[in-house]
Amino acid sequence: MNLFRLLGDLSHLASILVLLHKIQTSRSCRGISFKTQALYVAVFVARYLDLFWRYISLYNSAMKVFFIGSSCYILYLMKYRYRPTNDPSIDTFRIEYLLVPCAILSLIFNYNFMPTEILWSFSIFLESVAILPQLFMLQRTGEAEAITTHYLAALGIYRALYIPNWIYRYFTEGVIDPIAVTAGIVQTGLYLDFFYVYFTKVLQGQKFELPA
């Protein structure tokens, strides 16, 4: 564990708390892509079921339980409690374009050709693109509530912080995880446009609006 990874994980944790806060206080999931949230459930379940056979630390296990539990809870809120505020007609990204390529990539790139390792690779690839339906929705509507952008920023910062973590680990432990690093760089790259608008507009007190 190093500082970059810890701050990254805390940022990830914060992003979910911000999202829950947004949904609970506005009693609405407007502006949130159900598809992205469903993909995160798939990511966490595929990757964190190793809870049952791999013990790393109490921290690690507690975070895994939290991420699986909170992502399922968010789906429940969107699908049942605040269903009327969820508008599927603007959440139109075709997720099979993500699921199928990720499944194929995980069969080719994995550290061991066995179900658990293939699932791990699949979750890494899927996580890297899971935000696309959300970004696509943002692009379509052209604007977002400030709190939604804080959620996305925290999520992006989490991934960005994993990059210095890998560099640090490479020099201190000599470890390199090519699958996680490649997917992680792609994932962070997807946020660059968003970050630009977030830092130049939202953090200056302006509304998040994309140029027409």
């Binding site: 990874r5 994980d9 990830h12 190793d50 791999r54 790393i56 690690n60 975070m63 895994k64 991420f67 550290y111 061991n112 390792e117 791990w120 994993y162 973590n165 432990e173 000599g174 470890v175 390199i176 995880d177 090519p178 699958i179 996680a180």
Partner: peptide, 10 residues
């Protein structure tokens, strides 16, 4: 351990 398949990251 220090191999990629240790998967100690979240």
């Amino acid at each position: 351990s220090a191999t990629p398949d240790a998967h100690d990251e979240l």
